[in-house]
């Protein structure tokens, strides 16, 4: 095979692969971008070419007190869920990092399994149990279920950070006279701070978007995603795009903040 044909050969395959990657990313982002674009489109039934620019869908939702109530509720749920599940996740990650004990496999399985259970089933189980003990249909019912779903993510993030830590750091602190609590406060938690903040952001984002379990247990206390779900069951309604884009902006800023925190810390670690 001549030099030239070899070069063009691999050029074609590289070109094809690049194009393929672009197509995959286009598929992944098409619905997200489209939803954003259509949220400013005046036509109720959007087609190409687009209608005129409008902010009426945003005006409609901002004028709707139900939307504001749901929004406030979503934020509350997300914030409380983030705090509780990050606390639990951190404790579980630290347990895994620090201790060996009988039944650890089972313990970790329990800690990490919930996201693999279909949300519908989780919703049904929570609804069945909570309604039996008269705890369903409340804002805290959503929080309870979301913590179950979110703490595994928080655990994973904190565990990843802990695995970058020299295990002897903590022992060194003890050796220098720190109590277990002091070592935790002065060594472990500062070291894990970026991971903890990242976990707060990510769990808040997951909770803020979760619709299935919330739909089962929320009763009349709808969150934003549950509201979207119910609008979706009706007719085509561009309000969804407006709400969706709004929600997207919030979730994505949480994710970006989390990502930046994780990345910058990584870079610092690499340099030193």
């Amino acid at each position: 095979m001549s030099d030239r044909s070899r070069a063009s050969d691999s050029a074609i395959s590289t070109w094809f692969l690049r194009l393929y990657v672009l197509v995959v990313f286009a598929f992944v982002f098409a619905p997200i971008i489209a939803s954003f674009v259509f949220s400013f489109n005046s036509d109720r039934f959007p087609t190409i070419p687009l209608g005129s620019f409008t902010t009426k869908w945003y005006e409609t939702i901002f004028a709707d007190t139900d939307v504001w109530d749901a929004f406030a509720r979503s934020l509350t749920v997300a914030a409380i869920t983030a705090v509780i599940s990050t606390t639990i996740g951190f404790c579980t990650a630290y347990t895994d990092f620090r201790y060996r004990f009988r039944g650890k496999g089972f313990y970790l399985g329990l800690a990490l399994l919930p996201p693999t259970v279909p949300l519908v089933i989780m919703g049904l189980a929570m609804l069945a149990l909570l309604s039996r003990i008269n705890m369903s249909g409340q804002v805290y019912s959503i929080v309870i279920s979301h913590v179950v779903l979110c703490s595994p993510f928080a655990m994973a993030i904190c565990r990843l950070r802990l695995s970058q830590m020299d295990p002897s750091l903590e022992a060194a602190a003890w050796n220098l006279g720190a109590s277990q609590w002091q070592a935790m406060k002065t060594v472990i938690i500062p070291f894990c701070k970026p991971a903890i903040i990242a976990a707060l952001c990510l769990t808040a984002a997951v909770s803020f978007d979760e619709f299935a379990v919330a739909w089962f247990v929320s009763g009349l206390n709808k969150t934003i995603p549950v509201m979207i779900l119910e609008i979706l069951q009706g007719n085509v309604d561009p309000q969804i795009n407006a709400i969706g884009s709004f929600v997207f902006a919030i979730s994505i800023s949480l994710v970006v903040v989390a990502q930046i925190l994780v990345m910058t810390r990584d870079d610092k670690g690499r340099k030193s």
Binding site: F29, P31, S35, P225, I228, I240, G244, F248
Partner: peptide
Amino acid sequence: MFLLIIPFFTSYLVRAYSWQIF
């Protein structure tokens, strides 16, 4: 990797609705 994680945190419902439009 970063871009691929984004959809995980965007509303699946809204994306499904978007596909309805397409």
